[in-house]
């Protein structure tokens, strides 16, 4: 049984191998994938998503380059590092501050799209080229 299943969005304009890379990174951040887990084989990914096996292997090579996974010949590709951070005190505080900020935004009459646009623009300013 594989631990994760990839979802490929054909309309996203994001290259398929990048979608796989991003989904593995996301799963690592969320703790869905942890150290020692085996990623699905290219044949398994192909069976569920029809993704070309060479595309999956390319994504795995990229993840290997980032030091997140390692291939073990004959066994598969395994997660070698986790990205999940323990829930720190700083996280909880930041979340609380963001919640009250959003309350104010709501009170000021900003709708969902306005808030999204504001967040994105500050995000881009602080973390350029994410």
């Amino acid at each position: 049984m594989s631990v994760v299943e990839f979802r490929i969005d054909r309309r996203s304009g994001v290259a398929t191998y990048l979608q796989i890379v991003q989904q593995v990174q996301q799963a690592l951040r969320l703790g869905i994938l942890v150290e020692g887990d085996r990623l699905p084989t290219a044949a398994q990914v192909a069976a569920t998503t029809k993704v070309n096996p060479n595309t999956t292997l390319k994504a795995y090579r990229e993840l290997e380059r980032e030091g997140l996974v390692e291939p073990r010949p004959g066994l598969g590709t395994f997660v070698s590092r986790t990205l999940a951070r323990p829930d720190s005190a700083a996280d909880a505080l930041l979340r609380e501050e963001l919640r009250s900020w959003m309350q104010r935004a709501q009170a000021e009459g900003l709708d969902r799209e306005d808030v999204q646009a504001l967040l994105n623009s500050v995000l881009q300013e602080r973390y350029p080229d994410a």
Partner: peptide, 8 residues
């Protein structure tokens, strides 16, 4: 899916 998996 079958085709892709067997080919892989």
């Amino acid at each position: 899916g079958l085709l892709m998996a067997e080919a892989a």
